[in-house]
Design a protein around this nucleic acid. Structure first.
Lengths: 330, 330
DNA sequence: ACTTTTAGTGGAATCGATTCCACAAAAGGA
DNA sequence: TCCTTTTGTGGAATCGATTCCACTAAAAGT
């Protein structure tokens, strides 16, 4: 592979001069510039970013840690991140945590060893181990999705959206409302959204039957199982169910269809996420749009601000959301 | 940031020794090893992969060029790629071409400048410019999705799957079959799949009316428009329509539903891709599963073989597929 | 005509690792 | 006991760029 030295020799100048042409900095005569450019053209020389960053201490690479690669949310967020970063000449180094905290920590170390300029963490949990790993990291980091203490974070408005969605359901006249959630180690999705639901119910003086609240993982299957349990274990069957993700909602709908329970007449359904599916299932699913691309963009901007030092450390931002009421709720 | 020299001083040994501990290579006494390890522990030293790869000429990074980040296919493929690569200690540098050839070429250069060990290109077109850029690239590259001449490529079996799917439709008794395709600059999806459809029709002595064949982009909207045209422009309205992607099929279904045309009784529909939506629209969509994760894994393996020189250059591989016949076809 | 700027250039140090080589001490073999 | 291995170590070169600094020649100022 051809190096700057080869170019220097070919153009009969010093590497210094070549470097100056490359970065157009300092003085360089037209004659020298032309010779260098010709040499580059001729050899197809591509400067090594690698060597450059060793010297300059900037890699122009941002690490992005995802809980899982192949999810609609993740790819939307990455899309947004890329949109902002690529414009500023940054590239994205992908790191997959595969839903394991251990992996998450490992990836942090790995990204640090690669000397990325910054890290964006799509956070799903706040385990002590992870917080510690983040604390003794030497790379600027921002989190998306969970409020990580001491770290600039962007969060979705899980509480208000869950509460508002529940209230919307209530406003349609439902009094018995089921809830399909996830494990509470996920602070944002597991805990906060549930709290939104509970508080909305409480505010309207509605009591919740224990069997109405079911938990699952993040897959469609879990939604199916949860709905089954709700229906079989409740004394008073709910007339509506709020699932904390669209996938869970879809799963619930699957079960209802199987049992010939009419949506929304016998059971109304709502989810969160505005997944593409939500628009095409029938009936169309009522959901909340978190605008993930936008969140990704904001996160990237926050990180860039951090890198440029032009922002106070430790900013927190809560993203906006949008209720989308469709046929699955009436 | 602490360097190997700091560790050397702290442990009272030479950098050479520290390096030996790091890579456990060569001889190093227990005493020295312990001291080095202690120093590392104490300082939280993380070796610079960067400096390392400058010397070793290996970055352990693979560039992946996507036509678009936020698509189901792309994220599934990346998932597969990551699965194989991360196991071997490689990381993924994401490059978004945003459906532009220019960008694709630019990303090639960019990845080369970062000295990635290899590149995986999710190819969508075979423009001359691109082929040239690939030709004078100094990095091992494999392509997925299109057969790039002179380059190891993995392709889906677009021809056979399209033909077989069309034949399946025919076998259900349909004689008038519409087709929703995409622009033919996309060799695999645009041209080859169409050929599969045409050949199947021809083999069965079925003539195709011009208006039955419509083209669009890759979005749902296009499918909607295409179906509209098929219905309004045909002399003899088809009783089934084959769309080259699930999204186009979904769009077509949307139009049919709007017009109260019953699927599959009045119009059967089939797509390709086995997208998640296909399972949850109603009626459930007949489609072809290309198993993108698996394709991603195979592509990654092919690249690794290439890097290890253990494989002949220029291998071509055609992936398997699986027909999924669901309610939208009868 | 002499001093001060401005242009233009290259030598050499530097970034943080690896690795070749030389060398010394200890262990093993004759 | 002397010679050969084995073990252990560090100096110095290297990877491919940037950048500080010194230096010369030409241009500008007085």
């Amino acid at each position: 592979m051809v190096t700057i030295l080869d170019i220097a020799k070919l153009a009969e100048v010093s590497r210094t001069t070549v470097s100056r042409v490359l970065n157009d900095s300092g003085y360089v005569s037209d004659k020298a510039r032309v010779k260098v450019l010709e040499a580059i053209e001729q050899t197809g020389y591509v400067p090594s970013e690698q060597a450059k960053s060793l010297r300059t201490k900037k890699t122009k690479v941002i690490g992005v840690i995802l809980p899982k690669i192949s999810t609609e949310t993740a790819s939307r967020v990455v899309d947004g991140i890329d949109h902002v970063l690529s414009e500023k000449g940054y590239q994205i180094l992908l790191a997959n945590a595969n839903l394991q905290v251990e992996k998450e920590i490992e990836q942090l170390k790995l990204l640090e060893s690669r000397r990325v300029d910054g890290i964006i963490l799509l956070a799903t949990n706040l385990e002590e181990k992870l917080l510690k790993a983040i604390a003794d990291l030497n790379v600027p980091l921002v989190a998306l999705g969970q409020d990580v203490p001491g770290i600039p974070s962007i969060v979705y408005d899980d509480y208000r959206s869950a509460k508002e969605l529940t209230e919307t359901i209530i406003s349609k006249g439902h009094k018995h409302i089921g809830f399909i959630g996830v494990y509470e180690t996920d602070e944002a999705v597991g805990k906060v959204r549930k709290q939104g639901y509970m508080d909305a119910m409480k505010d309207h003086g509605l009591v919740i039957e224990e069997a109405w609240i079911q938990k699952g993982k993040f897959d469609i299957e879990s939604g199916y199982d949860a709905m089954k349990k709700i229906l079989s274990n409740s004394n008073h069957t709910p007339t509506a169910t709020f699932a904390v993700t669209d996938r869970l909602a879809i799963g619930a709908m699957e079960y209802l269809k199987e049992k010939q329970i009419v949506i929304p007449d016998q059971m109304a359904i709502a989810g969160i996420g505005a997944s593409e599916i939500s628009k095409y299932v029938s009936p169309r699913l009522t959901t909340v749009d978190y605008n993930n691309e936008n969140a990704g963009m904001e996160t990237a901007r926050l990180l860039l601000d951090q890198l440029n030092g032009s922002e106070e450390k430790m900013r927190k931002l809560s993203m906006d959301y949008r209720l989308i009421v469709r046929d699955s709720l009436r």
